[in-house]
Simulated assay, not measured.
Amino acid sequence: MIREPQPIQRPIPPAVQKAYGAADLGANPIFAGGFINFGHWQAIDLDSGLSHEDRVRSQQDMYRHVLDALPSTGQLRALEVGPGTGVGTALALEEYGFAHVTGMDIHPRQVERAREANSRVLADRPEHLGFVQGAAEDMPFGDEEFDCLYSVEAAQHFSDLTAFGQETARVLRPGGHAVIASFFTTDDTPGHAEHLAAHLDCYANGLDLAHPVTHVTEALNRAGLAQTRAVSIGPDVWQGWDRWVAHVSGPDAWPRNFLRAYEEGVLDYYVITATRPAAARAH
């Protein structure tokens, strides 16, 4: 039975409402270019003096690294969960040949920003791109609507990983693929959440949640997805992010504690891949 699209049911967490509300987080120099991710810095010389162009490229390269993890993209229908201002969604459409990309964000102001940033494409090629409001745990789509699902640095906000896993499995067609990239605790050792909250404001105020990476993969597995794998890309993220934070915010900026948490073995950045089996139904 195909589920008809429904209006968003889940409330927006207060910290998410505040962070992505009146102020455009994508306009903050710490992010640059409208993207909102820590960046994939493998191709950038960190010792040469970082530029605005380097920072933008690091964030573009994060999208490319995630999308390269999909076995195929051409002429497929894709869902991006948490697209922010939509500049990464546009990159996916232009560089990877999707038939259509839908960006879904829980925050209505982010949906507005994404539509504004991509107004020309939406006007000229509405059959290829769209942005809708929806929660990762309660997606406003029919069953088996997408060939692939990807998410770049949004899953640290998801309050219910079990529901996210179930929704991911439901909206993917049999044989469809999911790729989720974000930062998670390395294991479920007690005290990780408190440690992060003591050193990082985004954990202290509840914007980011200290999900163990195993809880993410287990949620996908419980939902019926298979071939689930989590791979650390921390070496290509944390040093570059820390150098950029120091460059734009100074040596004592609190986001520099992300590198500290990584070096202490508490936190890391992962790319998680999973597949909906071709012969199985979503749970």
Rank of each mutant, 00 (worst) to 15 (best):
I2Y: 01
I2K: 05
I2V: 09
I2N: 14
R3A: 04
R3T: 08
E4D: 11
P5N: 04
P5M: 04
P5W: 06
P5Q: 00
Q6K: 14
Q6R: 15
P7T: 05
P7R: 05
P7K: 08
Q9T: 11
R10G: 07
R10H: 11
P11C: 02
P11G: 05
I12K: 10
I12G: 02
I12V: 15
I12D: 06
P13E: 07
P13M: 05
A15I: 10
A15Q: 10
A15D: 09
A15L: 08
V16K: 04
V16H: 06
V16C: 07
V16S: 06
V16Q: 12
Q17G: 04
Q17C: 03
K18G: 02
K18N: 03
A19Y: 10
A19K: 14
Y20S: 06
Y20E: 07
G21W: 13
G21E: 09
A22R: 13
L25S: 10
L25Q: 14
G26S: 05
A27I: 04
A27C: 11
A27G: 01
A27T: 11
N28E: 14
N28F: 03
P29C: 03
P29L: 02
P29T: 03
I30K: 09
I30G: 02
I30S: 00
I30R: 13
F31W: 15
F31L: 02
F31M: 00
F31P: 00
A32T: 13
A32Q: 07
A32D: 05
G33I: 07
G33Y: 04
G33K: 08
G33M: 07
G33W: 05
F35N: 12
F35C: 02
F35W: 11
N37Y: 09
N37V: 02
N37G: 09
N37S: 11
F38Q: 12
F38C: 11
F38T: 01
F38D: 00
G39R: 09
G39M: 00
H40D: 00
W41L: 08
W41G: 06
Q42C: 07
Q42F: 02
A43V: 06
A43H: 15
A43W: 07
I44T: 13
I44H: 12
I44C: 09
I44Y: 10
I44V: 12
I44D: 08
I44N: 11
D45E: 06
D45T: 01
D45Q: 02
D45H: 10
L46K: 08
D47Q: 13
D47W: 01
D47P: 09
S48K: 15
S48F: 03
S48V: 01
S48E: 14
